[in-house]
Each structure stands twice: as C-alpha cells, then as structure tokens.
C-alpha cells in the first residue's frame, strides 16, 4: 500500500501563508534590534562615564608634612581616613614627579621650581556612590584647608541621561513586542477563520484543544523564528556600521580613533560590536519564535473556548 502524506485537515499553509508573517516579524525584529542596540550603547556609555574619569575625586592637602590635629602628619592622617572609608576603591597619592609633570605648564610660567606644592591624592570611588561628602568634615578637622574636587558632577548627569536613553530603548522594545504580539494574534485569528470549517470538524471528531493550538503554534513559531532571523540579519550591517562609528564614544579606553576594519573578516566584527549586542542578535530569532508560539497558543485556545 502506497504511503500517503499526512493530512489532518487544518491545511496550515493556507491558514498561515509563509510570506506575510515572517516579513512582518522580520520588520519588528529589525526595529527591536535597533532599539536594543540603542539601549546597550547607552548602557556602555553610562558604564564608561561612571567607572572612568567621572569616578575620580581629587583631594589637595596643603602643608602635607605639617602635624595633623591628632597625631602624625596631615597627609598620613588624610590617607588613613581615605583608605579605610567605604565606597573608596583606591586612594593614590601623586608622587612629586607626577605632580610636577602635571603642573609643568604653570611652574614653567612662574619659573620657580621650589614653589611649595600641596600633596594631591587621586581617589577612585565606587560607581554610583559619593563617599567623599560625609568625610569632608573629618578631613577638615585633621587637615584644615584640605580641598576636595569632585569630577563626577557632569558624569553623573551624563549617566542619568544614559539611564533615560536606556529606559526609552526598553520602552521602544516593549512597544515593538506589543505590536508584534498583536500582529501574530491578528494573523492567527485570520487563519482560524480561514480554516473554521475544518477546525470545527476535527474538534467534533475529538481533537484536543492542545492538539489544534499546538499545530497552529508550531507553524507560527517557525514562521516567527524565520522572521526573527531575517530581522537580525538585516540589522547586522547597520549595527556593525553604527558600532564602528560609535567606537570612540563607547570604548572603555581613551583611544578615540577609528581604526580601519577588514569587513570581510567576521572576527573583526566581534571586535567592533559589543558582545552584548552580538548575543542580543543571536537571541532575537528564538525570542521571536517563542513569543509567536506562546501568543498563538493563547489565541487559539481562547478561540476554541467558543466551541463546546
């Protein structure tokens, strides 16, 4: 007996044509990829601003070798406080050579190399913390005239801006996901209407709700996966170009250069594009597939509830 092709009457190729849904999901995935890329870029900038120069505070101690209010020298007392204060990652006293190198333009102008200089301590604080403010009165008490300069005011504002950008990106992703879910729901409901006669029949022949919803969900999940893959692939060249252009702003090092890239070498792409962005592009197709699958399961099961 010749083998026959399996038919259960749902004819999902008619109910859910293979061109329409993947194209729409691809468009949604493309937009989601751009929004997520924006969020990741804002996160990277925020990291750079809060962990980089913005997290450094300068403490000037005039008369460092003078006796402190308690015991020992002023600089030793200040360093002791800074070293043991929570929220301070490192406290580095600049050496004489570093200090004179830093002040070389002014010293050369005055022509007086024996000018008494304060001791300067570079304090690296933990991201998002301000440990210096509570210490000011203690420092002032043991070393009157001590000066603390925060470099973090602008970086904090920029970090707040980056936070807002991340929130906007997240909102954009949520909107795109909502639209994608609505599109999948509409396509599924149209498919259900197209095959209504067959669904009602196989329901009356004893098909479980899980069987019918599973068949629809598998089809939609696959189409959404293909669409997500298309969207990711379409977004890749644009994100590569944008990452390359934004490299000087987002790099953790201070090297604002646009090095030439060999675009034919995929390994070079990995150097340009942040790893989080690459993972996001890889995760997008399965996420689209799973979203499509779940949405279809719920839509079909809700529709089947109309039947007894």
């Amino acid at each position: 007996m010749a083998r026959r092709r399996y038919h259960d009457g749902l004819a999902l190729h008619q109910a859910l044509p293979g061109q329409f849904l993947p194209f729409l999901v691809a468009a949604m995935s493309f937009l989601a990829a751009l929004a997520l890329a924006g969020g990741i870029a804002a996160h990277n900038l925020s990291q750079r601003w809060t962990h980089g120069a913005g997290a450094v505070t300068t403490v000037q101690v005039p008369g460092p070798d003078d006796p402190a209010a308690g015991s020992g020298t002023r600089i030793a007392a200040v360093q002791d406080i800074l070293t043991h204060a929570p929220g301070i990652v490192a406290a580095h006293r600049l050496s004489d050579a570093e200090l004179r190198n830093l002040l070389a333009p002014w010293i050369e102008q005055t022509g007086d190399a024996s000018l008494p200089l304060p001791a300067v301590i570079e304090v690296h604080t933990a991201a998002g913390q301000d440990p210096m403010s509570p210490l000011l009165s203690r420092l002032e008490a043991i070393a009157p005239g001590v000066m603390v300069e925060h470099d973090s005011i602008w970086s904090n504002r920029l970090a707040a801006l980056a936070g807002s950008l991340q929130a906007c990106a997240l909102l954009a992703v949520l909107i795109v996901m909502t639209v994608a879910v609505c599109v999948v729901m509409a396509a599924t409901r149209a498919g259900l209407q197209t095959r209504r006669q067959a669904i009602v029949l196989i329901h009356s022949l004893g098909a479980m709700d899980s069987y019918i919803s599973g068949r629809f969900a598998s089809r939609v999940g696959l189409l959404a996966l293909v669409g997500g893959l298309g969207g990711s692939l379409a977004a890749l060249p644009m994100l590569l170009a944008m990452s390359h252009l934004a490299a000087p702003f987002s790099a953790m090092t201070d090297a604002p250069v646009l090095a030439p890239v060999d675009w034919r070498d995929p390994r070079a792409w990995a150097d340009i594009v942040p790893h989080a962005l690459l993972w996001m592009l890889l995760a997008l197709p399965p996420a689209a597939g799973i979203t499509g699958w779940i949405t279809t399961q719920l839509t079909v099961r809700a529709w089947l509830r109309r039947l007894p």
């Binding site: 038919h7 259960d8 009457g9 022949l205 004893g206």
Partner: peptide, 9 residues
C-alpha cells in the same frame, strides 16, 4: 484523507 481523519486524530 476525509475518512482517515478520525483515526489520525
């Protein structure tokens, strides 16, 4: 396929 439908289900 019409007649086979119940058995396939």
């Amino acid at each position: 396929d019409n007649v086979a439908l119940p058995l396939r289900l």
